[in-house]
Design a protein around this nucleic acid. Structure first.
Lengths: 371, 371
DNA sequence: TTGAAAGCGATACCAG
DNA sequence: CTGGTATCGCTTTCAA
């Protein structure tokens, strides 16, 4: 293999200076469109690949990345943030500066956080699109419209976001269906809860749950889909309704974090014992319910890994100018009473802890690291 | 935060040259022990952190890493190798040169491969310790004894290896136990197959399988543990014996890749239908058996991620001089008939393909990437 | 054993 | 809009 092509090679080939080459390749401004085109095509034909080490060494200011996420009600977003931070520092070369901005809930502070990031001159954004349909407008309004945005957990379709990192909703839904079918011996009626049918991920989980149930466990029937709108009181009330109108319910699949009100309703109405419950994610209260057998299994969405992948994707874009995939979906982990304790040990306290900690060296969700 | 400390700062503080500082910090040779000590302590007290970009930029020769693994009988090791390669190039800066050496089976060519790596001047090794207890001797015999070795999949205890990457055996075994218990409605006798009790990972899977079974499904009983020594004929024969002597067997947990002979034996003896089988890993033949319902679930050990993590660990060591963890264990993925198809889609053909392919951009096992 | 200086390949800046 | 050159922090080499 020959010596790598450098900016000097390009400059020499065209008899221009490296400054010009650099402007053509990166700045984009203050350069004659014609020269630019020549440089670009020469770079391509020579097979130029920038030397990142040289780039990082000479670059004055780090690229700013704004991380806009929900304040942790559970530990999910804390873990996502940790994952991003871990990956950033695992990069070894800190050419990047992270700025975390959090907002209290789905309708509050999200736009302000986004605008703050824009005003602050962030070069890229990793965010939870709390209101997916609004993102498009924000992006459009922002002066610098080319800014790359990576969405985590939920997509913002047609918003112009660069990429999405989320859990594989089909794997989640179909796994839940197969397990609930097996656990219930293939007979009985089941229900699904989700936040809102309008959220793509939730709808997908429900749909693959249903289709897998029909395909593999035809003796079972999906009798209800509850929309809880992420509201605890609403979830509790609707769950009670559900259990009242379907006293024979055999199982329920909760596609969101909002499982505690459902469990409480079931307990209050005395149907908990005969219900096979499959939940989503993991947090202290849920750990308890798995231990005592109320919840048969939970589908862990690997928030830390979602964060890590989001950073990698962004970094790839910043370096290459493009991403290898616009949608990156992770397989969830299954946690049951059987493997719960081992799993928690692997998480190094990440789930049980109440406040974010530092200095952990876990390289992957549920990877346990022994010093 | 202040300007980072550089070699110049250390040099100035001690009134020596950067050459000397460098020799103290990296070369180790041709330097007065006293000066070296002084530089080292000054570096520490100033909080010196090397600038990797500068290092990579100026370094002439890349560090060589030898990857010593089994030739793929199934796709497991192909995937491990892919994972290593992906991570290496994801690093962006190619300061590393990978050299792959494979050996045909557990007792053949492994030592030669190791010696070849040593003779060739490899700076580090990622390997499958086919004969764990021999590694110690090899490492000792090699002149350059400080060479870092990362083991994948299986440990080589007390060999002096730097670190281990493997799947969490406790999570695997306990998950298998809980599922088999649930699928069999909590009653019946079950068996386990493993390669050899002497292999730590296999013993651990068996043990946590047993203890979880006892704890959560006391109505079930582990009646046999079969050692198959990774030999197909032996596995088949012993499986037949097992089914003959335990005609009432309700389930079996196969902790290794060697599941096909077991399934064949069960089929030949007409007990397949009433058996709940949980296997390990995923390959084309097994895909078929999951589809047709012969296998209830398989525990996927994420070979690609194991490879990625092994590389990261090594890279961390090469950079930092130490690793954050000596044991890195991953949580396995559960695959059932329900989520199999989605899972395969996510693997982008990695499992179904017969020969290694390139150019995929999957960032994590079972992460599906859409361009 | 140590010092001095020349790269590495980008980016940044100042003149023209 | 373009050219020339200093610079980033480390490694490497050559002299002393």
């Amino acid at each position: 293999m020959a010596r790598p092509i450098t900016v000097y090679d390009i400059a020499a080939a065209l008899d221009v200076s490296t400054g010009t080459v650099h402007r053509a390749l990166r700045n984009g401004e203050g350069i004659n469109p014609l020269t630019k085109k020549k440089v670009l095509s020469m770079a391509k034909s020579l097979g130029y690949r920038p030397n990142l080490a040289a780039r990082y060494l000479s670059q004055k200011k780090k690229t700013k990345i704004s991380i806009n996420t929900l304040q942790g009600t559970t530990s999910f977003w804390d873990d996502v943030r940790d994952g991003i931070e871990e990956e950033a520092k695992a990069q070894g070369i800190d050419s990047v500066q992270l700025e975390f901005r959090t907002f209290p809930n789905l309708n509050e502070g999200d736009e302000a956080a986004f605008n703050a990031a824009m005003k602050n001159g962030s070069d890229a954004v990793i965010m939870f699109p709390s209101r997916p349909n609004l993102l498009r407008g924000w992006l459009h309004n922002s002066r610098r419209s080319g800014i790359p945005v990576v969405c985590v957990a939920t997509d913002a379709p047609d918003s112009g976001r660069l990429a999405l990192v989320s859990v594989d909703t089909n794997v989640s839904g179909s796994l839940a269906a197969d397990l609930i079918g097996r656990f219930c011996h293939g007979v009985g009626s089941v229900a699904v809860t989700l936040s809102d049918r309008g959220i793509t991920e939730h709808a997908e989980k429900r749909d693959s749950f249903q289709s897998t149930l029909e395909a593999l466990h035809p003796g079972m029937k999906l009798v209800a889909t509850v929309e809880d709108h992420d509201d605890e009181a609403e979830t509790y009330a609707k769950s009670r309704e559900l259990f009242a109108s379907h006293p024979d319910l055999a199982g329920i699949y909760i596609t969101t974090e909002d499982s505690m009100p459902v469990i409480r309703a079931a307990r209050d109405m005395g149907v908990l014992g005969k219900l096979t419950i499959i939940t989503t994610d993991l947090f202290p209260a849920l750990v308890h319910e798995i231990r005592n057998g109320a919840v048969a299994a939970t589908i862990f969405q690997r928030p830390r890994t979602q964060g890590r992948m989001a950073f990698r994707l962004l970094h790839e874009y910043l370096v290459e100018g493009q991403v290898s995939s616009q949608k990156l979906t992770l397989s969830p982990h299954l946690i049951t009473r059987g493997n719960l304790e081992y799993f928690l040990k692997g998480l190094s306290g990440a789930v049980e802890r109440s406040s974010p900690r530092r200095g952990s060296h876990v390289l992957d969700d549920s990877a346990s690291a022994t010093a």
